[in-house]
Amino acid sequence: MTLVLDVRDATKVYGAGETAVHALRGVSLQVEPGDYVAVMGASGSGKSTLMNIIGCLDVPTAGEFHLDGVDVGGLDDRQQAVVRNRKIGFVFQSFNLIPRMSALTNVELPLAYGGVRPAERRRRALAALDLVGLADRVNHQPNELSGGQQQRVAIARALVTSPALLLADEPTGALDSSSTLDVLGIFDRLSAAGRTIVVITHEPDVAEHAKRVIRLRDGQVVEDTRLAPVDGLPPRLGEVTA
């Protein structure tokens, strides 16, 4: 079976000379389809750096990186845009919705860039918003939504293209406990439905929802623990929905 994600010996150096920062010092990571991975580590350990490289938002200084069987390093600018559009859904800590655009339009946007027809676009965007429980808020603009609701719109936007990999960088970092539970519930259900998820978090509570936990320190993987089998259900599914 093809790995969804195959990072081999990735390094990332910011700057040069004396001030150079080695954010990643040879990270290797393989993720199978259907896995739910939590990446943990102290602040500055390189979690976001790794995530940005996986999400094709940044390039590694060295190392190889395959996404869903495709060697991303060899792609040109336009092909990378297509990869970001089709294969990856990215959820940010700070939501990153486009202001002055309704929730529906925000969710439709990746489909617009993907060349999907307007009617089909609307149908899929509405379905995605329904999935995150926001069917009644589709015409609200980001500034008319709560933080938790905004994050759910952002998740809907990440899901709408049915990407091979859902990435989330501290998705609950800016949310209160009840919104956090909403988001984690959505992730659990997505995982149960077979979607591949990689999530960064500081909070052990959040990491407990994943099937596998990876710990980074100083730009290296120092721990890799499996909590549940890849093809099983996420460990805390029952609790959240209960």
Binding site: G55, L57, D77, R78, A81, V82, V83, R84, N85, R86, F90, N96, L97, I98, L109, P110, Y113, G114, R157, T161
Partner: peptide, 10 residues
């Protein structure tokens, strides 16, 4: 940045 992150081509 957001538009590029969700796949807007150049």
């Amino acid at each position: 940045g957001i538009r590029k992150a969700i796949g807007a081509p150049r």
